[in-house]
Design a protein around this nucleic acid. Structure first.
Length: 511
RNA sequence: GGUCCGUUCGUCUAGGGGUUAGGACACCAGAUUUUCAUUCUGGUAACACGGGUUCGAUUCCCGUACGGACUACCA
């Protein structure tokens, strides 16, 4: 195989969608596996949809998930510029070439005229209302107008577009890497606009020209492009680039959790999960969206999850680092059917990745979170907290949110637990335990435990019977991480203080 | 409507002419845990339908149904 060159080519119309991240990932995996080149190209040919900050957002998002770019916007390269708006003249040149070769033509039809044509066809019961080999002969273009008329119109500054002259009868074939041969009859393809009246190319022309000039070998993109792929094949042919045409791989779509339709921001909002990799403030609507990063997803976990949405290695291994993905990836093993987006699976991956981290690593996350919450914490203490919370969390922030009692003395107690477990025995043991603890010269989890055993033995009440009451008095809740470690983290004095408080507050019909 | 693509447990999927149709998530149950969580064990659960081809189809072929994408001077 020639040197693989792939590209990710988003348009900067907003934040990068999670589906786009997956597309970028598959491109990246193929590039890295083959020692090829990963290119980032920005498809900003629609000036009306340009959103400030979107391009930068895309670059930052890719960097966050660990997709590095070899060539393109932000890094440069031999085929610069990589922003299509800066390549206007290039497309114009090839459009002109197509016209000279009789494969394209100028069209002067106004929006109203196009609308009228569609209405007319619809009224006549024609299946497809398109600008094609038949209808173009009834429109105002350089095929129906005389050379002189065309010249006059253009000199008068009449707006015009350039359209592809799609042949009337031709079988267009394309061998998709994922779907096999796809055949479409040219009569089904309309005379797509190649150059818009503002002098910018449309996606179709720009993408073919750039892929050719940038020597792209594999076009890996979403399935929504499949219907227009035959058009692109036609373009390669008319430009005489057929032999170097890239291979196509149209990825199955990421579907809503309900399964009906492409995953959209709306669905994500409704179901309460992120759709963008990073936080995004839309400058046009002023809407704020929370990203995967800010929600507490680890980039490795997100990547692992995304990679498995539409692809699998054929083994039972589920956890893959980026390097392992690079080794295992293959286009052949990409599925054909759309994959529903299941956020629960993403959470499971996140949990797995979190669990595989060392306490020291987790402590770093925790300290960040605590700082943001304005809470002080030593590294030593953060490491201990990480160790007891590690197996109970899905997101780093859980270490804080589920363990606030480590920092604040509880002021209330879970009533249902109190009702069930706070009884005379509990009061007896806890009172005695409080007294023993207060006299200790040294204190840690082990000592706390030994002391409890001694106390329960001496009063003849099983530790199991009162442990939940003890937990309640220390944490305010009936469930939580290892209680002895909790006591060690809180410290002797604080524990005694809390026991006093609980004994006073929960005082029960002890007698 | 037209064109194209698709269809294995609820979800992601493996598999493939003869299998107890495998795994993972989720769910349920049991064990461990002083609790919850983790972990372990077990369980419920799938080849859309109809024809063909075949000794035999979930697997191959053809239809049907259903779903999706596309159908702009948007990408």
């Amino acid at each position: 195989m020639k040197d693989v060159r792939v590209r990710f080519a988003p348009s900067p119309t907003g934040a990068l969608h999670i589906g786009g991240v997956r597309t970028a990932l598959y491109n990246y995996l193929l590039a890295r596996q083959t020692g090829g080149t990963m290119i980032l190209r920005i498809e900003d040919t629609d000036q009306t949809r340009y959103v400030p900050g979107a391009e930068e957002y895309i670059v930052r998002s890719l960097a966050w998930v660990g997709i590095t770019i070899d060539e393109g916007v932000g890094v440069g390269g031999p085929h610069a510029p990589y922003r299509q708006s800066e390549r206007k003249e290039i497309y114009a040149k090839y459009a002109k070439q197509l016209i000279d070769n009789g494969h394209a033509y100028y069209a002067f039809d106004t929006e109203d005229e196009l609308e009228q044509m569609r209405e007319r066809l619809k009224a006549a019961g024609v299946d497809q209302q398109q600008y094609n080999s038949i209808t173009r002969m009834q429109m105002r273009n350089s095929l129906t107008l005389s050379e002189q008329e065309v010249k006059t119109l253009m000199e008068a500054g009449t707006p015009y577009v350039i359209r592809l002259k799609v042949p009337r009868k031709e079988e267009v074939r394309l061998n998709d890497l994922i779907r096999g041969w796809v055949m479409v009859h040219s009569s089904q393809i309309d005379d797509k606009v190649l150059m818009k009246s503002d002098g910018m190319p449309t996606y179709h022309l720009a993408n073919v020209v750039d892929d050719y000039l940038m020597k792209i070998t594999h076009v890996i993109r979403g399935e929504e492009w499949l219907p227009s792929a035959p058009l692109h094949v036609l373009l390669y042919k008319f430009l005489d680039w057929e032999e170097v045409m890239p291979q196509f791989a149209h990825l199955p779509l990421l579907l809503k959790p309900s399964g009906d339709g492409k995953l959209s921001k709306r669905d994500a909002d409704q179901m309460g999960f992120p759709i963008f990799p990073l936080d995004w403030n839309d400058p046009t609507t002023n809407e704020k969206a929370v990203g995967y990063r800010e929600s507490g997803y680890l980039p490795d976990a997100l990547v692992n999850f995304l990679a498995f949405l539409g692809w699998n290695p054929g083994t039972t291994q589920e956890i893959f680092s980026m390097d392992e993905l690079i080794k295992a990836f293959s286009i052949e093993r990409i599925g054909k059917a759309g994959a529903r987006f299941d956020i629960q699976k993403a959470q499971w991956f996140n949990q797995q990745y979190l669990k595989s981290k060392s306490n020291e690593e987790l402590a770093i996350y925790l300290i960040d979170i605590l700082n943001a919450a304005g809470v002080d914490c030593s590294q030593e203490k953060a490491i201990k907290i990480s160790s007891i919370m590690k197996d109970r969390i899905t997101f780093p922030k859980d270490m804080w949110e589920q363990a606030k009692f480590l920092f604040f003395t509880p002021t209330t107690f879970d009533q249902s637990v109190a009702d069930k477990k706070w009884n005379a025995d509990a009061v007896t043991v806890i009172s005695a335990y409080r007294d023993s603890l207060s006299k200790l010269a040294h204190f840690d989890a082990n000592i706390a435990k030994e002391t409890l055993e001694t106390v329960t033995a001496s009063v003849g009440i099983g530790a199991g019977k009162i442990l939940q009451a003890l937990r309640l008095s220390i944490t305010g809740a009936g469930a939580g991480p290892d209680l002895m470690m909790v006591m060690e983290i809180i410290g002797q004095q604080e524990v005694v203080k809390r026991l006093d408080f609980a004994l006073q507050t929960l005082k029960v019909k002890v007698a």
